[in-house]
Design a protein around this nucleic acid. Structure first.
Length: 202
DNA sequence: CCCTGATTCGC
DNA sequence: GCGAATCAGG
């Protein structure tokens, strides 16, 4: 595989979005994360804010470096005068403010209805799950890796989010709970202590 | 352990 | 220019 314009484009885009090198590599295919990182550096787009290991590329002491001109600061005239903003923040589609958990009624009322306008997929329903757990879930979904089916591994949370029939579908992808298929938050709602299961009596 | 990015250096 | 190997941090 070679770095075609399109591939570089996608690389830039994803890197800009804060995607990790490995994720970008998976997306591109045919390259390893090393290749991606190498390219990123060659392209000059290195440090994003604080991803994981920033400080150290700068604090470099050159002991035996006589002269290192390295004329940086390229005037680089803007070839695109029109408005083509490069939002550092990804466009958040819709962020329906989740129900705050702050309110602590004396009596734990199990209301907390899932704000679904459409019938949800066979997702483990939230019947008798503690509002705590639910809140935690909606909270964690903000930090989800949003993996595709192919990106799931033995240790990525396989909790599905969204409607499989639409684009807005992905898997949590956060680190799983040891021995479980889901991350901590999702384990919380996935495995219920089997309670009211006796409606069906004969 | 699994993940991240950074750097080096032979190709 | 490329990227595996290696390094280093979380």
């Amino acid at each position: 595989m070679s770095w075609t314009d399109e591939r570089v484009e996608l690389l830039k885009k994803m890197w800009g979005e804060g995607q990790s090198a490995s994720q970008i590599a998976k997306e591109l295919g045919g390259v390893t994360r090393n290749a991606v990182i190498g390219k990123v550096h060659r392209l000059g787009l290195s440090n994003r804010s604080t991803g994981a290991t920033p400080a150290k590329a700068e604090a470099k002491a050159k002991p035996a470096e006589p002269a290192k001109p390295q004329a940086a600061a390229k005037p680089k005239a803007e070839a695109k005068p029109e408005a083509a903003p490069r939002p550092a923040s990804e466009p958040k589609p819709a962020a329906p403010a989740p129900a705050p958990v702050e309110t602590r009624p004396a009596l734990p009322a199990r209301k907390q209805i899932i704000p679904a306008g459409q019938p949800l997929p066979p997702q483990p329903s939230a019947n008798e799950i503690s509002p705590e757990a639910l809140a935690k879930v909606s909270e964690v979904e903000k930090k989800a890796k949003r993996l595709t089916l192919m990106e799931l591994t033995e240790r990525t949370c396989k909790w599905p989010v969204g409607d499989p029939a639409t684009d807005d579908f992905w898997f949590c992808g956060l680190p799983v709970q040891p021995g479980k298929p889901y991350c901590e938050a999702h384990v919380g709602v996935a495995f219920q202590p089997m309670s009211a299961r006796r409606d069906r009596r004969r």
